[in-house]
Simulated assay, not measured.
Amino acid sequence: MSDQNNASVVGGKSFTAVAINCASKAGEWIKTKLGNYASLDIKYSSHDLVTEIDKGSERLIKNLVMTHFPHHSFLGEEGVEPGPEASAKALANIRDAEYLWIVDPIDGTTNFVHGFPFFCVSIALAYKGEVIVGVVYDPMKDELFVAEKGKGAYVHGKRMQASKDETLRGSLVATGLPADHHYALPLNLKGIQAIAPQVRNLRIAGSAALHLAYVAAGRLSGFWEIGLSSWDLAAGTLLVQESGGIVTDTMGKPYDLGVRNVVATNGHIQDELVAALAASNANE
């Protein structure tokens, strides 16, 4: 831990403070653009949209990060070609960097485009492949979720704790509808069909990062999805872990930056959710 603690500040500049500043500034700007984007493009599928606001948000964040830490590496969604292969390749090329900022400038672009108020800015910092800072900012609710490795996770300045639900039957669980219609979407739909009857209820709100933040805050007891990318997961994963929850891949193996098929829970229902997905062949 001492190595990580020493790594949390460079030249007197707090990584967490910079991440919070970037997320807040980007989020405030995004909110002013709600309903006012000029261009809309389809990237990988009709579920995978991008606007000039996504690109502008990423530029804003990258410029701020590089002003403070010019020698750090940066991985942002809008700097990568669409599709799962491109996402995996982009991460593989940079994941061994000493300091790597991993950014989704708007997680939930489809919601943003439709004026559905469930989207966020997600910013993580990995040190030698391990996430040490995670910030998720919801500009519509002005909710800032912040975690530092080994120091807990907070929202509204109050420490978060994952829910205490003991079983799937008593749990509110979330998932998503992946952009990859060939592999990930059919698999996730199979999981939905299997899991929905086993839980108290299921939510699909359209932002993986916010779903993870809600698991950390105890508002959801679990979340799973197939075919996500590092920028969807990195910040939210640390929020969950620092709130007492557990994050693995859908096979039950520990989270790392390369995980694309994810299960995140309060810890109590982790094994049950992983097993339920496996039983329905909806885990890989």
Rank of each mutant, 00 (worst) to 15 (best):
S8R: 03
P186V: 10
V136C: 05
A38M: 15
I94E: 00
A264C: 13
V131I: 15
Y137D: 06
A86D: 00
S280M: 03
C120I: 09
I226G: 03
P139D: 10
V263C: 02
P197M: 02
Q270G: 03
S8Y: 13
F116A: 05
V262H: 02
A86K: 00
V155Y: 03
S171E: 02
C22H: 14
L273K: 09
D107H: 06
H72K: 08
G79Y: 06
E81G: 03
G27Y: 08
S171L: 05
L185T: 06
M66Y: 14
W101L: 08
H182R: 12
E78C: 07
F116L: 12
V240E: 12
V65S: 07
W29V: 01
D256L: 00
S45P: 06
S171N: 13
Y154G: 13
H68L: 00
Y214D: 04
E272R: 09
G12C: 00
K31H: 14
M66L: 13
I226L: 05
G150D: 07
C22T: 15
G245C: 11
E242L: 12
S122D: 14
V10I: 07
T175Q: 00
F15D: 09
P117D: 06
D232G: 02
H47M: 08
G252A: 11
S57C: 13
N6D: 02
D256W: 00
K190W: 01
T16I: 12
K149D: 05
A19M: 12
G129V: 10
I30C: 11
K253W: 13
D41G: 04
T32F: 01
E284Y: 11
V50T: 11
V103F: 15
K151E: 11
K128Y: 07
D142C: 01
A216L: 08
S87G: 06
A179F: 07
E28F: 09
A88R: 05
Y154W: 05
S243W: 14
L257A: 10
Y137C: 05
S57W: 02
T16Q: 12
E272L: 02
E242I: 14
G227R: 08
S8F: 15
G56Q: 14
D138A: 10
D249G: 12
R203K: 03
G236P: 08
A23C: 10
L100C: 04
W231T: 08
I132R: 01
L228D: 09
Y44C: 11
I192Q: 00
N63E: 15
F15T: 03
A279P: 01
Q270K: 02
A209V: 14
W29A: 11
I269Y: 05
E98A: 13
S280A: 15
T67M: 04
E78D: 12
I132N: 02
S280C: 10
L91G: 02
E52V: 11
L125G: 07
A179V: 01
V133M: 01
V199A: 05
L185N: 05
A278P: 03
G244M: 08
M140A: 14
P84K: 04
G218F: 04
L40G: 07
Q270T: 05
W101F: 04
F69P: 06
S87D: 10
V135N: 15
N266S: 07
V65K: 09
S8L: 15
H156N: 15
Q161M: 09
G27S: 13
A147D: 08
V199T: 06
L239C: 13
S171H: 02
F116W: 09
S221Y: 07
Q198H: 03
W101R: 13
D142P: 03
A234L: 13
K151I: 12
L60P: 04
H71W: 09
E78M: 08
G157W: 06
